[in-house]
Amino acid sequence: MDDLYSLKQDFNKRGIFLSFSGPISQDLVVEIGATLKKKMKLEEAGKTTVLRVFSAFVENAQNILHYSAESNFGIIAVGSERDCYFILCGNSIDNERVEPLREKLTKIKSMSKEELKQYYKEQRKKGPDEDSKGGGLGFIEMAKKASRPIEFDFRKINDLHSFFSVRIVI
């Protein structure tokens, strides 16, 4: 039982106030999203901030729904530090998705706000890539709304899968 307490202490230390680990569903996205909004409104966060954090939560959670290699399993956490909120998200992906995703995120990470705005418009007009289950716009949208560049990491689990994690700061 000590282990669970140390996990909680670790969350506290990192400023994480909401977390989920397990198989996610659209119903859970709706429910956890509503809880997140309520909690932020109690803290009197501004309207744009609440909507941006909520939006980053939904995009990440729906990425897990669409792309997790482990039947909808993923980890998602929301926290605050100083004057920002952050969203952490992680899930397993097929190894062959690693390089295209790394390429995409590296490109997005290097862009200025104005470039992101143009890129978003271009991609939205063009429509999603073949392997995309949504609009292919989620990460561009998150980067547009973030106050710092997106951070991400890939760790190889075995010959089939890697663990992908991403951190968005609003």
């Binding site: 939006s55 995009e59 949504g134 609009g135 716009l137 989620g138």
Partner: peptide, 12 residues
């Protein structure tokens, strides 16, 4: 009030 990124494509 809120739309996700794939709904944004739909709006366009």
């Amino acid at each position: 009030i809120y739309f996700n990124s794939s709904s944004s494509k739909v709006l366009l």
